[in-house]
Design a protein around this nucleic acid. Structure first.
Length: 325
DNA sequence: TGAATTTGACCATC
DNA sequence: GATGGTCAAATTCA
């Protein structure tokens, strides 16, 4: 039991370090992923040990329960036995992990996020919408579908922001869907010939999720006068090389910032069931051409899951103190 | 007043 | 013919 408490303390320390390092990490999603992964791994380890303990020792885990319980939950559940504690931990852990994954996925640049390797890494394959019935059009643009959480607070009717400016050009009732599908195209379509489009539709069974389908690629960032946004290649390079991006667009910076907020809320809320409001600025990176490009996702995966998770466990390995921004 | 949104109509595909 | 995607006039908003 002592080891479990130690692990939890360690996870809390990691979370606090993450929180304190947020201002300097707004543009380093890979390191954030590393940190989250470390926290989740530590809590998972504690959970597994708790499982084993609770199987061997059926004594109530009241002290630990009180330690981990949210105040409002304590009010409603003054007593908690080992079984319900186990259920609670399981539930909380699962929800938190899912929320973190959601938040992480929504922050990773779209081109990276939608790569099969990335989905595999993040365990998000199941979140991919089932392939729609094939329908070849004259202009068969590349199509990528993701699920993003709807805002929990504020105007939940607003589709989640993704860092780009979109212009709505249509809305249509879709057969078999409770919610209409909204059609957007890049605001800069006329000015820069940007062909990026997206469709936003609330999930039928889960209205708290939006199904967002992107088609085409943003070309507006290529213009010298177009809104600045970092090409994903550059961002990925920065991520994998653990260097600080020389310049981040306001959009990217704020998106990263919101991503951090999401993580923060997720960590604080535990199983409370709520992420940071996506409407405040969920994040997508710019979407540019990636056809044929060989992104070093494997390297990123290696960094994320092999390099930092097993050895050291020092927060310094995740957030070297030498960097400031 | 210009930009963004709404919405009915039209077109493409199955 | 049914359905999804887009157009464009009308309307709303800042």
């Amino acid at each position: 039991m002592e080891h479990v408490i130690t692990s939890i303390h360690h996870a809390c320390a990691l979370a606090q370090s993450l929180e304190s390092g947020l201002p300097n990490l707004a543009n380093q999603p890979a390191r954030l992923c590393l940190s989250i992964n470390e926290i989740v791994k530590t809590l998972s380890d504690a959970k597994e040990r708790l499982m084993i303990l609770s199987q061997h020792d059926q004594t109530p885990l009241s002290s630990f329960a009180q330690l981990m319980m949210m105040p409002h939950e304590m009010h409603h559940q003054p007593q908690m036995d080992a079984i319900s504690m186990q259920e609670w931990i399981s539930c909380s852990y699962t929800q938190t992990t899912d929320q973190l994954l959601q938040a992480a996925m929504s922050s990773i640049p779209l081109d990276v996020r939608t790569l099969p390797e990335t989905k595999m890494i993040m365990g998000m394959e199941a979140m991919e919408a089932s392939p729609s019935r094939s329908r070849k059009r004259k202009v068969d643009l590349e199509k990528r579908t993701i699920m993003v959480p709807a805002p929990q607070f504020g105007n939940t009717e607003m589709p989640p922001e993704d860092g780009f400016t979109w212009r709505k050009y249509g809305q249509k009732e879709i057969l078999g869907s409770k919610y209409p599908r909204c059609y957007y195209r890049c605001t800069h379509q006329k000015l820069y010939g940007c062909l990026a489009k997206k469709q936003v539709q609330r999930h039928n069974d889960n209205p708290s999720m939006y199904e967002v389908t992107y088609r085409g690629n943003h070309t507006c960032h290529m213009s010298s006068t177009a809104p600045l946004s970092i090409p994903p290649q550059q961002l990925l390079l920065d991520v994998t090389q653990r260097t600080i991006s020389p310049q981040l667009s306001p959009t990217t910076a704020s998106a990263s910032s919101m991503w951090l907020s999401s993580i923060n809320v997720g960590l604080q809320q535990g199983g409370g069931g709520g992420m940071a409001p996506a409407a405040a600025g969920a994040s997508d990176g710019p979407s540019t051409s990636r056809d044929g490009a060989d992104y070093p996702v494997v390297d990123m995966a290696d960094v994320m899951f092999n390099n930092g998770s097993s050895s050291g466990n020092s927060i310094e390995s995740l957030f070297p103190p030498t960097e400031d921004n």
